[in-house]
Amino acid sequence: MFEFFPWLIALAVMALFWWQSLGARWAARRAALAACENAEVTFIDELAFQRIWLGRGTLKRRYRFEFYRRGDRRYSGYVDMHGQRVAHIEMEPYPV
């Protein structure tokens, strides 16, 4: 019975990481949609995971997204997440 215990712990850790990643992605998507709505531009694509790194006791993730102003050109932006919290949103300059 105890030979399966390390596998169960590894499986639980992987499930926890997956669950937290989904939560961070949904929070980043809501933040990107809100930023696009506030800037009066159209959110085009779903978020694309760009990178993950370890920060002061938390995982940091960056998600990229695209938007357009008039439909002639796509612009990009990104959302930085620190754990489940939105840390920074930046959008490429676009014509007004």
Rank of each mutant, 00 (worst) to 15 (best):
M1L: 13
E3F: 15
E3R: 13
E3N: 09
F4V: 15
F5M: 15
F5V: 15
W7A: 15
I9F: 08
L11F: 13
L11A: 15
A12F: 10
V13I: 12
L16W: 09
F17S: 11
F17C: 10
W18K: 07
W18V: 09
Q20G: 04
Q20I: 07
Q20E: 12
Q20M: 13
S21V: 00
L22P: 00
L22C: 11
A24G: 03
A24V: 03
R25M: 15
R25Q: 14
R25L: 14
W26D: 14
A27D: 07
A28E: 01
A28D: 02
R29W: 12
R29E: 13
R30F: 05
R30Y: 05
A31H: 01
A32W: 01
A34E: 11
C36W: 01
E37P: 00
E37Q: 13
E37D: 13
N38C: 02
N38M: 09
A39H: 07
A39V: 03
E40W: 03
V41D: 00
V41G: 00
V41F: 05
T42C: 00
T42M: 02
F43K: 10
F43M: 15
D45S: 13
E46Q: 13
A48Q: 12
A48N: 08
Q50M: 10
Q50C: 06
R51F: 10
R51S: 12
I52Q: 11
L54I: 14
L54T: 05
G55W: 04
G55E: 13
R56F: 09
R56S: 10
R56P: 07
G57S: 06
G57F: 09
L59D: 00
K60Q: 14
R61Q: 11
R62F: 00
Y63K: 03
R64D: 15
F65I: 01
F65K: 03
F65G: 01
E66F: 03
E66P: 00
E66W: 03
Y68M: 08
Y68C: 08
Y68L: 08
R69H: 15
R69P: 07
R70F: 08
R70C: 04
R70Q: 11
R70N: 12
D72P: 00
R73I: 08
Y75T: 04
S76M: 09
G77P: 02
G77M: 05
G77F: 04
G77T: 02
G77C: 07
Y78G: 05
Y78M: 07
Y78W: 14
Y78P: 05
V79N: 01
V79W: 00
D80G: 01
M81G: 01
M81T: 04
G83L: 03
G83N: 03
Q84L: 13
Q84H: 13
R85F: 09
R85Y: 08
R85V: 09
V86G: 01
V86A: 05
A87C: 02
A87P: 10
A87M: 06
H88K: 15
I89P: 02
I89A: 02
E90L: 09
M91E: 05
M91F: 06
M91S: 04
E92D: 06
E92Y: 07
E92L: 07
Y94N: 04
Y94E: 02
V96N: 13
V96I: 11
V96M: 12
V96K: 15
V96C: 08
